[in-house]
Computed example of a mutant assay.
Amino acid sequence: MGRKPTPEPRLSRRGAVGAAAGLAFAGAAAAATGGTARAAERRGGARRFEGRSVLITGGTSGIGRAAAEAFAREGARVAFCGRRERLGRAVERTIRENGGEASYLRADVRDAEQVRSFVDRAVSRYGGPDIALNNAGVQRPFTDLHEVTVEEWDDVAGTNVRGVFLAMKYQIPPMRAAGGGVILVTGSSNQFATRNGLGSYTAAKNGVTGLVQAAALENAAHGIRVVAIAPGMTDTEMLDAHRPAGLSDEEWARTKAAFAEQGVAGLKRMAEPEEIAAAALALASDAFSFQTGTSVPVDGGQLAAL
Rank of each mutant, 00 (worst) to 15 (best):
Gly2Ile: 11
Pro5Leu: 12
Thr6Val: 15
Pro7Cys: 09
Glu8Gly: 09
Arg10Ala: 13
Arg14Ala: 05
Gly15His: 15
Gly18Cys: 09
Ala19Pro: 03
Ala21Ile: 14
Gly22Asp: 10
Ala24Gly: 14
Phe25Ser: 07
Phe25Arg: 10
Ala26Phe: 04
Ala32Asp: 15
Gly34Met: 08
Gly35Thr: 13
Ala37Asn: 02
Gly45Glu: 13
Arg47Thr: 15
Gly51Tyr: 06
Ser53His: 06
Thr57Ala: 05
Gly59Leu: 05
Ala66Pro: 03
Ala68Ser: 14
Glu74Arg: 08
Gly75Arg: 04
Val78Arg: 04
Cys81Gly: 09
Gly82Leu: 11
Arg83Ile: 15
Leu87Ala: 13
Arg89Ala: 14
Thr94Trp: 00
Asn98Arg: 12
Ala102Thr: 12
Tyr104Asp: 06
Asp108Val: 15
Asp108Lys: 08
Val109Ser: 01
Arg110Trp: 03
Val119Gly: 03
Tyr126Ser: 07
Gly128Ala: 10
Gly128Arg: 05
Pro129Arg: 08
Asp130Gln: 05
Ile131His: 00
Asn134His: 13
Ala136Cys: 07
Val138Asn: 00
Val138Lys: 00
Arg140Trp: 06
Arg140Cys: 01
Phe142Val: 14
Phe142Tyr: 11
Thr143His: 04
Leu145Ile: 15
Glu147Ile: 10
Val148Ile: 12
Thr149Cys: 05
Asp155Glu: 15
Val156Arg: 04
Ala157Met: 15
Ala157Asp: 12
Leu166Pro: 08
Leu166Met: 10
Tyr170Asn: 02
Gly179Ile: 14
Ile183Ser: 01
Thr186Ile: 11
Ala193Tyr: 00
Thr194Trp: 00
Thr194Gly: 04
Leu198Asn: 09
Thr202Asp: 00
Thr202Asn: 00
Val208Pro: 01
Thr209Cys: 07
Leu211Cys: 04
Leu211Asn: 05
Val212His: 00
Ala215Ser: 12
Asn219Leu: 05
Ala221Tyr: 02
Gly223Arg: 03
Gly232Lys: 01
Met233Tyr: 14
Glu237Ser: 09
His242Cys: 04
Arg243Trp: 08
Ala245Trp: 01
Gly246Met: 10
Arg254Thr: 10
Ala258Trp: 08
Gly263His: 10
Gly263Ala: 12
Val264Ser: 02
Leu267Thr: 14
Ala271Pro: 04
Glu274Ile: 13
Ala277Pro: 01
Ala277Phe: 03
Leu281Ser: 09
Leu281Thr: 04
Leu283Lys: 01
Ser285Met: 05
Phe290Gly: 06
Val298Leu: 07
Val298Lys: 01
Asp299Ser: 11
Gly301Pro: 02
Gln302Val: 07
Ala304Trp: 01
